[in-house]
């Protein structure tokens, strides 16, 4: 019987401080054992439990893409006991990863469709994974138009700045980067909240266009009416939820919304599905 509570041992290979407030760091991990890496087959939208020995575990969305081989990447916000400790750790340190967990974005449905990615703040991690995955030369032909609306409070709070800049230069992905307020006179992208930019830039709804939204509750709250206005039906709006989790495998009981467990049945749900569940997230 495989023990789903036993983490794979990993080593921190690289740490990148992403934001100007230094509260977000991206950790690149390599597996200590080759066979663990082979067993760890994931899809964009899934998450893992990062295990800091002696402190505990935290569920974090996988920021790397399955098309990137040899490592895993996670971007971690410093909030609680485990994430704060993780932020003090150094390259070379040993810890653990359990996963992959959860259901991922519905890639079988998204194939052959237009994809609109709407992200805000530090919830851009699994969206990064998705973009890298779709832009992979082998995969890009499988999708039609890709639009990305991504906002943060200030330019310095955007994640993955270099990648954003490189995507801006491409013609197979339409980027709409925005900030709530630009303190940088050289800022050459949008200024405005994500819902406003969505209203201006998102493509019109049709049966072949899906929106994936990931962001803070306030952004979701104001973006949803915009998508309604644009005519997106609720089964074409895909969301990824966060809840407090421990086991990550649907057993410990805390992350449920109605009868669904966010950790196992989610974290990705369509808005149509969420409309039928209690809003306990």
């Amino acid at each position: 019987m495989q023990n789903p509570y036993l983490p794979y041992p990993v080593r921190i290979a690289e740490i990148i401080t992403e934001t100007e407030d230094k509260n977000l760091k991206t950790f690149k991990f390599t597996f200590l054992k080759k066979e663990d890496e082979e067993n760890f087959k994931y899809r964009s939208g899934q998450f893992s439990e990062l295990s800091v020995t002696g402190k505990g575990e935290i569920p974090i969305g996988i920021a790397s893409s399955p098309t990137e081989k040899g490592f895993l990447k996670f971007t971690v916000n410093k909030v609680g006991l485990v994430s704060s400790h993780l932020h003090t750790m150094k390259v070379g340190d040993i810890m653990g990863i359990r996963g992959p967990m959860g259901n991922s974005y519905p890639w079988d449905i998204l194939e052959g469709k237009n994809v609109v990615i709407i992200g805000g703040g530090f919830a851009f991690t699994t969206l990064r994974s998705s973009i890298i995955y779709m832009l992979n030369p082998e995969n890009r032909p499988k999708f039609k138009e890709i639009n990305v609306i991504y906002g943060a409070r200030t330019p310095g709070m955007l994640l993955y700045k270099e990648e954003l800049a490189s995507w801006e230069k491409r013609d197979d992905i339409k980027m709409h980067i925005t900030v709530d307020a630009a303190n940088d006179p050289n800022w050459k992208y949008n200024v405005g909240f994500v819902p406003t930019i969505t209203e201006k830039k998102a493509p019109p709804a049709d049966k072949d266009t899906y929106a994936i939204i990931c962001g803070p509750p306030i952004m979701i709250k104001f973006t949803q009416p915009v998508l309604d206005k644009l005519g997106y039906t609720h089964d074409h709006i895909i969301m990824s939820l966060e809840n407090r989790m421990k086991c990550g495998i649907g057993m410990c009981g805390r992350c449920n919304i109605g009868k669904e467990f966010v950790c196992k049945d989610g974290p990705v749900f369509t808005l149509a599905e969420l409309n039928k569940t209690p809003k306990e997230y």
């Binding site: 020995t53 505990g56 421990k246 086991c247 057993m251 410990c252 805390r254 306990e280």
Partner: peptide, 28 residues
């Protein structure tokens, strides 16, 4: 329902399950 906790004693430690309760605010 249960919780997972790391408990250390000096340099040794264990990761353990403890019963948890949906009645506790900390649960969620």
């Amino acid at each position: 329902c249960f919780d997972i906790q790391d408990e250390n004693c000096g340099c040794d430690g264990v990761r353990m399950k403890n019963w948890d309760s949906c009645m506790f605010p900390l649960f969620t």
